[in-house]
Each structure stands twice: as structure tokens, then as C-alpha cells.
Write a protein that binds this DNA or RNA. Structure first.
Lengths: 232, 232
DNA sequence: ACCTGAACACCGTTCAAGT
DNA sequence: ACCTGAACACCGTTCAAGT
């Protein structure tokens, strides 16, 4: 997928052209650019979700004719790819002086990852069908590095990385989707009761009413890290 | 969400009407019904994925006028809800005589769950935004029961259930989406190398070329179960 | 009770054309 | 080099109308 993403039209102008642009920038609408398109797409996605974004509405918001985007971008799919990877971009590893314990480092990395995705709830459900862009790969590399330095053997490393990835993705996607429908969760729990004796356990633990999402995430992550620690 | 799903028009006729139907059934097209709509939707989803299913094409395939579906079904979203829950329906608990060890039971249940979703690859990515239908709830209840009987305290049960759920969902969604793009995975791995020294760990372990999905799933699940076992 | 077509308000994308 | 409108082939859904 990453390979699909052709490099597009220009992209060199900013760097090679040291002279100031023709003043066009301060007046009214700045010119279209891939960057501006992606930034606006992220805004729209944040405000209205996946369903709210169409190429026509996006162009409109940019003050451009409906079809102008296609000179800067291949198609809608690419816009979503770029929006997703921008949001997942990895910023400044924590590098806070001395290396902390590996469990703390992993937990910090994954909690930051999850939080970043929850800040853009559309990203969680978009991710699975999209490319592994540089943002995602950077985070995976960091995770692998921590685990490797912590003593996980190379032969076990991929399984360890994917386990943690799976957990974070599952937790984040689940949380992002249930967030929108707390009322529905309550309704489902309600329905459990009326369904009689068929779900005694879920009814007893009130599974669908437990909304300490952050705590549950952290607890499950600890379970996983316990298992990994036992393996070394 | 489950609550949203109104019970629709009839649904009683099949049971209350013991006399044979007016011969309409053996000739040409059987009459429209919610069951037939959902069954055909599943067929189309299996064959062409989410993008291939529209209300118009679905009606066409059913030999019906474009708008006839709307008498049996509220809207497209409901069709997808119903299709998903049908596919996730839970069949016959393994009940093979004596209770096996709880780890084996959990692994069996979750592997069956994953396999069922992978048989309908669209289901994995559809699930997060959909209702918790009876099929899903049945499986969650079963999981909770096994864990509870294995000695997990009620106070830890919800976290344990969600951890396993998160893991299965993450693994299945990831697998279902990467399955379609093995070539892209290779391309991404390739790109890792050309990107120079920025991803030494991923390059060394060849993370993106490791496609022993089943083995990786099982290994990660073992890690999680180790962690749970340590907690009791 | 069940099905229908016309109509409305949208989509993504191509393409020939403008500047 | 960059932007545009018209056009094509689609969407989901409403509604008044048919049987």
C-alpha cells in the first residue's frame, strides 16, 4: 500500500525555490497543496467522522472547485491514507534522560499511541485497511527496540511485537466505537437481563456497564507484560 | 444498538401458519423476507466485500424492485448489522464430555471465533461499529463462564474478558486486512531497508515478512494466558 | 400486506477545456 | 502548471402510488 502512494506532482518547489512566493500567501485563500488538503481532511474527520468527508465537500471547504483536488492527490483513498498517517505521526521519543524500566517504557509508548488514536476516533477504525505509513512503522520500531534491549530473543520478538500491537488495536478500536454508543451499551446490558438466564456471568459482572476503559486497558496490558516477563 | 433494531413487520407467519404456502415457494423466486435479504447480503459480502454491497444491487440480486427491501428492513445499516450477527452466531458449545483444562477451553473458543471471522473477512472490520448482537453476547458469556469456573475472581473478570476480546479483535482485524495486501507488506518491508538505518530492529526480525499468522496468534494468546494464570 | 417507479439529494472520478 | 464544469455512472432513502 505504501508502495501505491505515488509521489504525486511536485513537492520540490518548497525546497528548491528559495525566493519568496508571489505574495499570494497572505491574501484570501492560500493555494491548494497536498499538505493543505490533508490538514483540512483531518479537521473534517475530527468534526464529522468518516461519513462526513467527501471529495466534493472537502474541495468546498478549501474554497476550490470540486475537481481541483485531483491534481494534487490520486483519489479519496489516498487522502484518507495521508490523513491517517499524519495523525499517527510519531513525535519525540520520551528520551527523558536515563532509560527507565522496560515495562514502564512499553506502557508509556502504548498508552501514548492509544491516546493519540482516541483523540481522532475515526483513526482507529480506519487503520486496519490502510497502509503502514512511516508514523506507524516508527512506533513499531521503537517498541521492538525496547523489547529487544529488555532481553527478548530475536526469535520471539515478532510474536511479542504483534501481541502488543493486537492488544492496543483491539482495545482502541473497541473503545473508540463504544464511546459513541454508551446508551446502547446500557441498552444491551438491559437486554441481557430480560433475556433471562442465558447470560448469568455477564449479568453478574455487569460487563457492559463497566466503563473504566483506561483502567481496564492498563490492567490487561499488565497481564500481557507479566506473560512476556516470564518468558525471558 | 441492539435496541435500535426494531422487530420489523411480521415474523410470526412461519410459525403460526401450519398450512402449506400457496405453492409460491417452489416456483421462480421465493418471496422476499428479512431472512432471504440477510442471507443474500452475506453472500454478496463474502464475494465482493463491503464495497460491493449496495441496496440497489442487493435488491437486483434478489430479483426484486430496487425499493422493495425497505418494507422488510429499516435501512442499509440494519442489513449490515443483521449480516454480521448471523455470521457471528454461536453454534454448539464444544461440551465434549468432561471439562478440559480452562486454558485449552479458552484457546479453543477464541480460535474458533477468530476462524469464523476470517471465513468472512469483512466481518472483522465491520464489527467495531456494530451492535453487540446475541451471537457476540453468547460468546462473551461462554468466555466469562470458563474464566470464572477457572477461579478468576469476579472483581478481575471484566478486565480478563476485555483483555482477551481486545487481543482477538486486534489480531483478527489485523490479519483480515493484511491478508488482502501481502504484496504491500513485502513492499513495506522493502521500503524499510531503503529507508536506511531508521528501523534496524524491524529490518533484523523481518517483521513484515513473517506471515505465520496462526502461530503468532497462538503464541500471543499463550502469553496472555500465562499472565492470567499467574494472577489467580 | 407487500411491492413499485419516479424523484431528490447526494457520491467518486474522467475528461476536455480553460488560464 | 494548475484549476474548472459538465458529464457519467453510480449511491441511500422518501413518498405517493399501485395490486
Amino acid at each position: 500500500m505504501a508502495a501505491k502512494r505515488g509521489d504525486g506532482p511536485k513537492k520540490q518547489s518548497k525546497q528548491t525555490n528559495a525566493a519568496p512566493q508571489p505574495a499570494q500567501e497572505q491574501a484570501g485563500e492560500p493555494p491548494l497543496s497536498r499538505e493543505r488538503i490533508v490538514a483540512t481532511a483531518v479537521e473534517m474527520l475530527d468534526a464529522e467522522g468518516t461519513a462526513g468527508v467527501s471529495m466534493r465537500r472537502l474541495a468546498d471547504r478549501l474554497g476550490a472547485g470540486a475537481m481541483s483536488l485531483y491534481w494534487h492527490v490520486d483519489n479519496k483513498e489516498q487522502v484518507l491514507d495521508l490523513a491517517l498517517d499524519q495523525v499517527l505521526e510519531y513525535r519525540a521519543p520520551q528520551q527523558a534522560g536515563e532509560p527507565r524500566d522496560w515495562r514502564g517504557d512499553v506502557a508509556h509508548l502504548l498508552e501514548d499511541w492509544r491516546a493519540g488514536m482516541l483523540r481522532h476516533p475515526w483513526s482507529a477504525s480506519l487503520l486496519p485497511r490502510r497502509a503502514l505509513g512511516p508514523g506507524i512503522l516508527g512506533r513499531l520500531e521503537l517498541l521492538g527496540g525496547i523489547l529487544s534491549r529488555a532481553g527478548v530473543a530475536d526469535a520471539d520478538l515478532n510474536a511479542a511485537i504483534w501481541s502488543l500491537w493486537n492488544y492496543v488495536m483491539g482495545a482502541t478500536i473497541t473503545r473508540a466505537s463504544f464511546d459513541l454508543t454508551d446508551a446502547d451499551m446500557a441498552a444491551a446490558q438491559q437486554r441481557l437481563s430480560t433475556l433471562g438466564e442465558r447470560h448469568p456471568t455477564l449479568e453478574r459482572t455487569r460487563l457492559l456497564l463497566d466503563n473504566d476503559w483506561d483502567g481496564t486497558f492498563r490492567k490487561g496490558l499488565d497481564v500481557l507484560l507479566d506473560g512476556l516477563a516470564a518468558r525471558k
